[in-house]
């Protein structure tokens, strides 16, 4: 049969066969290996990405735990500080109390000593006064005349 435009079914089939073999060959030799390599590389990068994300999350967890530890350490430090301050205050109070007691004692002792000294001084002064009075009386008596005594006695009598 004479087909117009020189269309030939045998040649169409030959072209089909040729193109099919070419496509299959290109797929096996070029397309598939290149695509496989691209996939492997993508997987490699995805693995790296996943690994990086895991490391990042681990780092974040570590950071969070360190922050928590830091916070608890700060709280602990605050507690220790407060406790130390309390202890220091107590110690200072104790020292002050002891110092006060001691000072009170010193003052009391001083007062007592002063009192004793005063008593002693008074006693000594009294003794001296008595001695002086006796001495003065003696002197007066020695100087005194009978007039004087008479005048005295007279006066006493008038009264």
């Amino acid at each position: 049969m004479n087909v117009p435009l020189n269309i030939d079914w045998q040649q169409i089939l030959l072209h089909l066969l040729n193109f099919s073999i070419l496509t299959l060959g290109l797929y096996l030799l070029l397309f598939k290996p290149v695509q496989k390599f691209i996939k492997e590389r993508n997987d490699y990068y995805l693995g790296l990405d996943k690994e990086a994300k895991e490391k990042l999350s681990q780092a974040e967890e570590l950071k969070a735990s360190y922050e928590q530890k830091l916070n608890s350490a700060e709280e602990e430090i605050e507690e220790v500080k407060a406790r130390s301050a309390e202890e220091a205050k107590a110690a200072a109070d104790e020292v002050i109390r002891k110092a006060k007691e001691e000072s009170d004692k010193i003052i009391a002792d001083a007062r007592k000593a002063a009192e004793l000294e005063r008593t002693r001084i008074l006693e000594e002064a009294q003794g001296e006064i008595v001695a002086l009075a006796v001495e003065a009386t003696e002197k007066l008596l020695a100087k005194s005349t009978s007039d004087t005594l008479d005048q005295f006695l007279y006066a006493v009598k008038e009264e």
Partner: peptide
């Protein structure tokens, strides 16, 4: 070639 074009 028209045969090639038809095949494609």
């Amino acid at each position: 070639d028209i045969n090639g074009a038809i095949a494609m």
